[in-house]
C-alpha cells in the first residue's frame, strides 16, 4: 500500500576521529584543518535506505541535514551514494545544537510527507542518542532505535533492535515510522562514478529553520576530569618499549 515508500534519511556532518578540539571560552571549537565526514551511523541509515531502493521498494530517498554551509558536502556525498534529493536546513554553526531544536526543524520539514524516516542511532560528536526518538514523538509515529536489521515483506517492516551482546528484539513497525539505525556488518557503499557525475549537477534544496524553540537550557563545556592518573611513558620510542616491558613484568603478565 505504501510501496514505493517515501523515505527521508537524516544526515549529520561531524568532525572525523582525528579532529583536534579546542575550548573557545566555554564552547567547543575545531580548527580549519578539521576534516568533516558523514556521521558513521547515518551512513548505515542511508545504506539501509539504498538497499530498500535496490529491492525496488522505493525510488524516493531524500536526505536532510541541519547546520552551516559546510554540511552541503555531506549532503552532496549522500547524493553520490544514491539518494534522490537533498535538503539543507540552514542553521548556525553549532555542532551541539539542542536536539529538541534539531528535531523540531526536521519534523517541520518532514511534516507528513514520508513513510519511513531513518536516522543514525547517535551522532558521534554530540552523542545524544535522542534526535530520532524526539522526531518520532513530535510526529506521533511508531519507532525503533538501535536497529541492526530491516526486513520487508509486502508492506510490513520488521526491525531487529540490538539490546546487548546476546539479545535482540524483533517486531513489526506500523508505517509511518522512524528507525534509528545502529552500525552492523553491512558496509555502506562507495559512490559509483555515474552517481558522482549525476550528483554534481543536482540542486540541494535550502530550507529555512523554524524560529528558535522555547525549550532551551544554559550549557558550557570543559575538558573532562581524568578518573585515573594516567602515567604517560616518556622518552624515545626505544625507551618507552623498555619501560612498558617493565610495567608488564611488574603486573606478572610476562
Amino acid at each position: 500500500m505504501s510501496i514505493p515508500y517515501k523515505i527521508l534519511v537524516c544526515i549529520k556532518q561531524v568532525p572525523d576521529a582525528n579532529a583536534k578540539i579546542y575550548l573557545e571560552k566555554t564552547k567547543p571549537h575545531y580548527d580549519e584543518k578539521t576534516v568533516y565526514v558523514i556521521n558513521r551511523y547515518d551512513e548505515y541509515a542511508l545504506e539501509e535506505a539504498l538497499q530498500l531502493k535496490d529491492k525496488g521498494l522505493t525510488h524516493y530517498i531524500h536526505t536532510i541535514s541541519a547546520g552551516p554551509d559546510r554540511i552541503q558536502k555531506a549532503l552532496r556525498r549522500s547524493l553520490e551514494m544514491g539518494a534522490d534529493e537533498a535538503y539543507h536546513i540552514v542553521t548556525g554553526d553549532d555542532d551541539c545544537a539542542i536536539p529538541y531544536y534539531v528535531a523540531q526543524c526536521i519534523t517541520d520539514f518532514a511534516k507528513n510527507e514520508y513513510d519511513i524516516i531513518l536516522t543514525g542511532v547517535m551522532s558521534q560528536d554530540a552523542m545524544n542518542q535522542q534526535t530520532g526518538q524526539l522526531i518520532a514523538s513530535m510526529l506521533g509515529y511508531n519507532y525503533a532505535t538501535g536497529v541492526t536489521g530491516i526486513q520487508t515483506n509486502d508492506d510490513v517492516i520488521t526491525v531487529t533492535r540490538e539490546l546487548d551482546a546476546q539479545t535482540s528484539m524483533q517486531y513489526a513497525l506500523k508505517i509511518p515510522c522512524v528507525i534509528a539505525v545502529q552500525s552492523s556488518s553491512i558496509i555502506p557503499r562507495y559512490p559509483s562514478l555515474s552517481n558522482v557525475l549525476r550528483a554534481k549537477k543536482q540542486h540541494i534544496g535550502m530550507i529555512k529553520p523554524i524560529m528558535s524553540s522555547q525549550v532551551q537550557y544554559h550549557s558550557f563545556y570543559t575538558i573532562p576530569q581524568k578518573t585515573t592518573e594516567c602515567e604517560f611513558i616518556q622518552g624515545r620510542t626505544d625507551q618507552k618499549v623498555v619501560e612498558l616491558y617493565k610495567i608488564l613484568h611488574r603486573n606478572a603478565v610476562v
Binding site: Q129, Q130, Q133, S137, G146, R161, E162, L163, V215
Partner: peptide, 24 residues
C-alpha cells in the same frame, strides 16, 4: 539508565511531558 533498552523510550517522555531531555 543510559542503556539500549531504556534510551529507546526515555527521550519520548520529554515530548509528552514537556521536559528537558539530557542524555548520557
Amino acid at each position: 539508565l543510559h542503556t539500549p533498552f531504556t534510551i529507546d523510550f526515555l527521550p519520548s517522555i520529554s515530548i509528552e511531558y514537556n521536559a528537558h531531555c539530557i542524555t548520557q
